[in-house]
Design a protein around this nucleic acid. Sequence first.
DNA 1: AATCCAGCAAGCACGCTTGATTGTTTCTTC
DNA 2: GAAGAAACAATCAAGCGTGCTTGCTGGATT
Lengths: 193, 193
Amino acid sequence: MGSVTTPKQDRSRATRQRLLESAVTCLAEHGWTGSTVTVVAEHAGVSRGAAQHHFPTREDLFTAAVEYVAEERSAELRALDGERGTHAAVDALVGLYTGPLFRAALQLWVAASNEPQLRPRVTDLEARIGRETHRMALRLLGADETRPGVRETVQGLLDMARGLGLANLLTDDSARRARVVTQWATILDDVLR
Amino acid sequence: MGSVTTPKQDRSRATRQRLLESAVTCLAEHGWTGSTVTVVAEHAGVSRGAAQHHFPTREDLFTAAVEYVAEERSAELRALDGERGTHAAVDALVGLYTGPLFRAALQLWVAASNEPQLRPRVTDLEARIGRETHRMALRLLGADETRPGVRETVQGLLDMARGLGLANLLTDDSARRARVVTQWATILDDVLR
DNA sequence: AATCCAGCAAGCACGCTTGATTGTTTCTTC
DNA sequence: GAAGAAACAATCAAGCGTGCTTGCTGGATT
């Protein structure tokens, strides 16, 4: 009975989890329209019917995936806590915008700009993550938001990080990014203090 | 013979031009996969067969559209020449990353990250435009690139502009953008001088 | 004036994706 | 141990986009 583990439930949750992870991966690799339910299911190692069992329609699957991406990004953000030093902070923040999670999020933004039903969900979650990121940035940088200009400076930094992530979409931009990060870390050191 | 105007040729060129403009508009409004040849042709006011006559395949149409976007962006960039003052310069540069042309370019970047045949064309043209933009930024800001750090500072500014443009994709970000621009303009005024 | 050919419109066939239906296995519960 | 439900697999029909083919119009060539 239910006293011990319920393997059926476990397996079900596992496949559901695998499907969501697969959706994120496929989003980053094949884009929005390239991430067909067949592709996602095959990548997850489950049949299409199984995917359809958990998420009756494609929209159901990807609305869940959008929330999943948001949670993962939030977790990745919280994992940054503890970084000290301006350069390390900037590097860590910029690092948020490279990697598969940001790639998936980027695909979702662009898709949401065209798909009306996707737009509100993405904008809401993005606004929430944006606020979280801003708070964490202030914390890592040890910045005092009450001082005039600090808020806009940090926002600009995060916008720069987004832009660097975007530049990294098509070509490996690591080398240039590192130089920009060190330069702006020193600039911020002067501005914020 | 061809001594005077050849109206047939003119009409042909006009249709071709309209198709390219329509492709860019549809790209910005409906995205890559949403910009079907039927949609582009209808938006241009020509039949699908006409579009297919000028561009036998969809790939032909959009490879031409990619170059067209690059040319338009280059023209928009050159039109900035003459802006003086750091704030005006930053504002103008950031302005490059808002508006339909950047939206279209953004859709192309994301599409190119998934479509292998599109990627090299987009990356090549983007690299060229990137260099042009950097040169123009140095010029508008009156920056001396030989000084250490100036190159990375300006690159970071342009990355921020890209990030602001990306943030403007889903929601109207004008108000926040204006504040960030003024703040970063003052920062650059300090750093570059 | 007669012929030719580029520009253009309409229709058809193919492949792909989605959503729905039906059948099969596996676990729970009495 | 058997009945029932849940998870999963396999197949089918409908819609859409692409590419190709056919047929027509209006300038260009001789």
